[in-house]
């Protein structure tokens, strides 16, 4: 069966000195899916993301992103790679000296010097609207925004170059349940309507149940399973058992099944 894979990782090895984080790790991400990545604290979820987006060079293995070698160091290839993904860091990592609008404009201006500034500004405003931020937010500085809005602004910036893949590092951490639920919906909307592949590193069981098509489990230096969440619940790995069948897991599963399957095109408030 030939799946349409957008990311293909084979034999990945990451080590910091004598401490090995990943050993012989394989991961497939299908085009257009929302993949959750879970694992205990310190299991190397963020390290995995960093090695895919090239912030960290693995000591062995291969990573293919959309048919390109993600470990390539050739400048033009790197530029193409970097345009193919957008990243939302945990607390947004917005440039504090720029307004939200300018934050979104930066990647556009830097990557496409030929575009007139006025067009870039309109485009950036669209991205801000796509991230479900109010129009006025564009003129504000990151320090004037709430945590949830900062994350949305970071999404707008990640969307700037119309990437194929969006990475989210703990998107709902530090948000109240309402904001977190809204963020989940935003994620769904973007993925479905823009046809994005989304990779979410999260501890939030609600996000896993409402948003993710499949979930990859990082444990013991490898991906021990990648499957829809219903299948993972049946997995007899002790860590997974505790993860999903502990009190919090059961509550989230209950809530997830109550609300029914996510609608095909959810609309946001």
């Amino acid at each position: 069966m030939s799946e349409d894979l957008i990311i293909r990782i084979r034999g990945l090895r990451n080590a910091f000195g004598p401490q090995v984080v990943h050993e012989n790790l394989d991961l497939d991400v299908r085009r257009g899916e929302i993949l959750g990545i879970i694992g205990g604290s310190g299991s190397g979820k963020s390290v995995l993301m960093k090695s895919i987006i090239g912030l960290l060079r693995p000591s062995a293995g291969s990573i293919d992103v959309d048919g390109m070698d993600a470990l390539s160091t050739e400048p033009s290839e790197r530029a193409r790679l970097e345009r193919s993904w957008g990243v939302m860091f945990q607390d947004g990592a917005l440039f504090s000296s720029l307004t939200v609008l300018e934050n979104v404009m930066v990647p556009l201006i830097e990557h496409y010097r030929g575009l007139p500034e006025e067009f870039v500004e309109r485009l950036a405003r669209l991205k801000i609207a796509l991230a479900a931020l109010p129009y006025e937010a564009g003129a504000k500085f990151p320090s004037e925004l709430s945590g949830g809005m900062r994350k949305r602004a970071a999404v707008a910036r990640a969307l700037a170059l119309d990437p194929q893949i969006l990475f989210f590092d703990e998107p709902t951490a530090g948000l109240d349940p309402i904001a977190a639920a809204e963020f989940d919906q935003l994620l769904l909307t973007l993925s479905r309507s823009l046809g994005l592949t989304v990779i979410v590193i999260t501890h939030d069981l609600d996000t896993l149940y409402t948003v993710c098509d499949r979930v990859a489990v990082v444990s013991a230096k490898r991906i021990i399973a990648t499957a829809p969440i219903a299948e993972l619940e049946q997995n007899d790995d002790p860590w997974l058992q505790q993860y999903f069948l502990g009190p919090r897991g059961r509550a989230a599963a209950h809530a997830g099944s109550n609300s029914g399957a996510a609608p095909a095109l959810p609309t946001e408030a």
Binding site: L126, A129, L130, Y135, E136, A139, T189, R192, S193, L194, G195, L265
Partner: peptide, 22 residues
């Protein structure tokens, strides 16, 4: 269908109510 979906979302967000730009 994918492109149409994208166009719809962009249309919806592009014409969101805007306060007059300062």
């Amino acid at each position: 269908p994918g492109d149409a979906e994208l166009l719809k979302l962009v249309n919806q967000r592009l014409h969101q109510k805007k306060s007059p730009p300062k």
